[in-house]
Amino acid sequence: MATVKFKYKGEEKEVDISKIKKVWRVGKMISFTYDEGGGKTGRGAVSEKDAPKELLQMLEKQ
């Protein structure tokens, strides 16, 4: 499965596409929420050019 690499609050993070719950576009950025486990929801964003094609496909399906 594909992963998304991004920075959040200065920390490098990587999340599996299957854990992503919601995806939306903000200008040229793709924002998303994902399941961190333990009932927590994380947030992240990547630029449109750095987003994996699976993430862009999720955006188109909504």
Rank of each mutant, 00 (worst) to 15 (best):
M58A: 11
Q62T: 10
R43H: 08
S18H: 10
G42I: 06
D16L: 09
F32T: 00
D35P: 08
K13G: 02
G10D: 08
S31V: 10
D16C: 13
P52W: 01
K21M: 12
I20K: 00
K61C: 14
A2R: 06
S47Q: 08
Y8L: 03
E36T: 04
K49R: 12
S31L: 10
Q57N: 10
T3D: 01
R25N: 13
V4L: 03
G39F: 08
Y34V: 02
G38S: 12
K19R: 07
K7A: 05
P52H: 05
K9Y: 14
M58K: 05
K28G: 14
I20N: 00
A51F: 05
T3Y: 03
M29S: 08
W24P: 00
K40G: 14
S31F: 08
S18K: 10
V26T: 14
A45Q: 07
Q57T: 14
V15Y: 01
I20F: 06
Y8F: 08
L59Q: 14
G10H: 03
K40L: 10
E12G: 03
K22R: 06
T41L: 07
M1F: 05
Q57S: 06
M29F: 06
Q57H: 13
K49M: 13
V46I: 10
E14P: 00
S18M: 04
E12S: 07
G38M: 14
E54V: 04
K28H: 08
S18L: 10
S31W: 08
K61L: 11
K22N: 15
E48K: 05
I17V: 11
G10I: 01
S31T: 08
I30V: 09
G27Q: 15
R25S: 13
K19S: 08
Q57P: 07
M58E: 12
D16F: 09
L59N: 07
K61F: 13
M1I: 08
S18Y: 13
K22H: 15
T3N: 03
L56N: 06
G39Y: 10
R25F: 09
D16W: 06
D16N: 15
W24Y: 03
K9T: 01
K61E: 07
L55S: 00
K13I: 11
I20E: 00
Y34W: 09
E11C: 11
V46S: 04
D35T: 08
A51P: 09
R43G: 09
E54P: 04
G37H: 14
W24A: 14
E36R: 04
S31G: 11
F6L: 02
D50Q: 10
E36H: 06
V46H: 02
E60C: 15
L55E: 00
I17N: 01
M29T: 13
